[in-house]
Each structure stands twice: as C-alpha cells, then as structure tokens.
C-alpha cells in the first residue's frame, strides 16, 4: 500500500488568532476513499484545498504523491501536483464561454500536449462514461446543475489524475440532481480511484467511504471506518454532529 497523501501538523489561519487548520495530521493510501465531514467552518474545505496548493500553509508538512508542499509554496512544485490531482468544486466552476468539449480538452491539449483529435476522442469517452455524451457541443449554462457537475468530474478526469478531490460536490445541486452525481462518484470509487471527499451526504459516506474523518474547529476529532462512525462514534462531538444531521 503506497501513501498518496501524508500530512503532519498543518496550520493555516486567515485572520490572526483564528486557526482554520489547527494542527491537522492524516494519511491517505492509494485506492482509498476518505470522506471528510464536519460542521461549516470546521476547516474541511480549507484542508482539501491545501492538497493541490489552492491554499497555502502557514506551517506543517504535506506530501502529495511524493511531492513536498510546504509554506514556501514553490510554483513549479504546485503545478506538478495539480497535473496529477483532479479537483471538483461545489460551484462546478465550468468555463462559461467554452463549449463542454472545450472545457474538457483545454488542459489535456495545453498541459499534456495531446493532439486535438486525441483529446476530443477522450473527452467524448469520458462524457459517455458520465452518461452525458450527447451534450459535448453545448455550453455550460444550457445544462442542469447535475449535468454540469458531471462535466466538471470529466474535466478533472481528462488529465488522468492519481487522486481526486471533491469539495462539497452536491451542496449546490437541486435535491433531485444529487443522485446522478453521487452515482458517478461511486463508479469512480469502484474503479479504485484515490478520493478525498468533503460532503454532507451520509448515505454516500456510509456506503462508499473506506474511512470517515470528522473535523471541528480546524482539528481532526476522529477518524473511523464508516460502520463505527455511524453506529458508535467514539467522540461526543461526532455523535452530537450526527444527531443533528439525522
């Protein structure tokens, strides 16, 4: 079992005295699905955004796929990580002025120097996999939220990432659109993708996660297998959070 992400004692604060990350340590092994849960403001989004350098660190050590990221935030290292780590956002963040196909092929063409036909063929295959192959020539705003988020997943997958990060991927969706996105993520997990997922979807966590990590106030409260976490969480704070969710 190889280690995909190794973090020790990560600290990050936006305002002096208030720590968004307050000494977070964790390990994600290859092929594992880690679900991160916690109340809003607990630092879970900040945490996974440090994994691809969208957030800088104040201190601590972070190793992603063998590349070190620290407070120095070396541009070349960050870029090297981003080419191997895909990210899906709460607000989809598709490029509104580009077609679905262009959204997906831009990075493979520019970053991986693939030929246009090659990148397009791969994009179509990924869209088919996501069940939206017929949408390739539309623009983002012509798609439903669920479809847009599946395009965003395809866009991230187009770079053949070794790790996928999901930052509350279903929180901005209409309730009836949540399932199609979760299904796509479930498929991805089944094929052995290493995933870190910030979500409030208890069903998804229970069914797909290998481990659930619970955060509060910038700290890791507990990390358990889903069975333990949902039936007999070790910490009082976890149990209180779960009772509010259900």
């Amino acid at each position: 079992m190889t280690v995909a992400i190794l973090a020790s004692d990560l600290v990050k604060s936006y305002t002096p005295g208030l720590r968004a990350l307050d000494g977070v340590s964790l390990q994600v092994t290859s092929g594992e699905v880690l679900v991160v849960m916690g109340p809003s403001g607990s630092g879970k989004s900040t945490l996974i955004r440090t994994f691809n350098g969208l957030e800088t660190l104040d201190s601590g050590e972070l190793d992603v796929l063998g590349v070190r990221l620290d407070a120095a935030h070396e541009e070349r290292q960050v870029r090297a990580i981003r080419r191997r780590v895909g990210m899906v956002f709460q607000q989809f963040n598709l490029f509104p002025h580009l077609s679905i196909l262009e959204n997906i092929t831009l990075a493979p063409i520019k970053v991986q120097k693939r030929s246009k036909p090659d990148a397009a063929a791969r994009a179509i295959a990924l869209l088919d996999q996501m069940g939206i192959g017929e949408q390739a020539h539309k623009f983002p705003a012509q798609l439903s939220g669920g479809q847009q988020q599946r395009v965003a997943i395809a866009r991230a997958l187009a770079l053949d990432p070794e790790v996928m990060l999901f930052d509350e991927p279903t929180s901005a969706l209409d309730p009836e659109r949540v399932k199609e996105v979760l299904d796509a993520m479930r498929q991805l997990a089944k094929r052995g993708m290493t995933m870190v997922v910030v979500t409030h979807e208890l069903g998804f966590a229970r069914e797909v996660a290998d481990r659930v990590m619970f955060m509060d106030q910038g700290q890791v409260v507990e990390t358990s297998d889903p069975q333990t976490f949902f039936t007999s969480a070790r910490e009082e704070r976890s149990r209180r959070f779960l009772s509010q969710m259900m």
């Binding site: 981003r82 895909g86 990210m87 607000q91 490029f95 831009l106 990075a107 520019k110 970053v111």
Partner: peptide, 19 residues
C-alpha cells in the same frame, strides 16, 4: 472560482488569464 478552476487543472497563470 474561474481562477481556481484553471489553476487546479495545472494551467499556467498567463495562459489562464488569456484563455
């Protein structure tokens, strides 16, 4: 979010700005 999206795809700053 548009900046974050192109950065997370490994695109360089100048290219992301232009495209």
């Amino acid at each position: 979010g548009q900046w974050e999206a192109f950065r997370s795809l490994g695109l360089a700053e100048g290219l992301g700005l232009r495209r």
